[in-house]
Design a protein around this nucleic acid. Structure first.
Lengths: 153, 153
DNA sequence: TATTGTTATACTCTATAACTATA
DNA sequence: TATAGTTATAGAGTATAACAATA
């Protein structure tokens, strides 16, 4: 029976031998990971003159969707979407289109230029997250499963 | 020799048998996880009348630190820190203190009320992330290792 | 000279409330 | 009546540039 090493030693130990982190420690690491993700995303968006929210909105538009849906996905009030869409529309990255099925609804969709911008953002973000590309298949499966467990859809 | 199942079937398969996600798919899942983390954090902060940035700043102040350091940790310009600290100081959650070693520097530190606020935010956030508490030791170790690999310190 | 923190400025994001046009 | 989108408003976050105090 081996007793777990004291916390001070943990950092120097290889992953396989490491003491399991507490949920609280894992929460701190999640905070750092989430911050790092958005720092990378914001940097990549800023390189194209876009704010974080503008980059997020463009990235969400894999298919046309109502403004109301964008508000839900961006976790903000519907009144904010008007301004964000306005600014992106004036730059030619997306456009509004009336929904024939319900004339109250405006569908937002990317222009060709918007599609290119999203593709470049995604590519640059992927190259920023080089640690992601170097994961083995087993590790990719494990990370997918664990993230799904901590953040259920 | 078994060939991997087509992508359309993947979703219905159990985790153990699942095809490994591509790095691009994993990047999308990271985006969702980071968004979910901050949605939870912002909700918990808002319950105490705090914005996301205010909650972040308080959570960073485990020990006194210069405004400049806060700017780096929050990934924003130093000029923004003045206003955020102002608002939290006027609410009695933190205070400024001159650094005797370098009189240009102002150290920011939590008040007793600020300490209580942080403790409550952390506790409520932990209860929101119930999926974290239910992870087995092996899964906690794995998640720690994988996050460290994708987002190196 | 360089650095820390502040101020002034302009822009963006944010929620709330009130409005319109549709349903 | 209810919903989708807009507008007006006020407050908060954001980067830039210029400044005072200190190193």
């Amino acid at each position: 029976m081996t007793s777990p090493p004291p916390a001070a030693i943990t950092a120097a130990v290889t992953a396989a031998d490491a003491v399991a982190p507490t949920p609280a420690q894992l929460m701190d690491q999640l905070a750092q990971a989430a911050a790092a993700y958005y720092r990378n995303f914001a940097t990549v968006a800023a390189q194209r003159g876009l704010t974080l929210m503008q980059g997020k909105m463009l990235s969400l538009l894999r298919r046309p969707m109502p403004m109301r849906t964008l508000a839900e996905l961006l976790a903000c009030d519907a009144s904010n979407v008007t301004g964000i869409v306005d600014r992106l529309e004036s730059r030619g990255l997306l456009r509004r289109e009336s929904d024939p099925a319900d004339r109250r609804v405006k569908l937002v969709l990317l222009t060709a230029e918007g599609e290119r911008a999203v593709a470049q953002i995604r590519a640059e973000l992927m190259s920023e997250l080089s640690g992601l590309e170097s994961l083995e298949e087993g590790d990719r499966r494990a990370l997918q499963r664990l993230l799904g467990q901590v953040f259920p859809a």
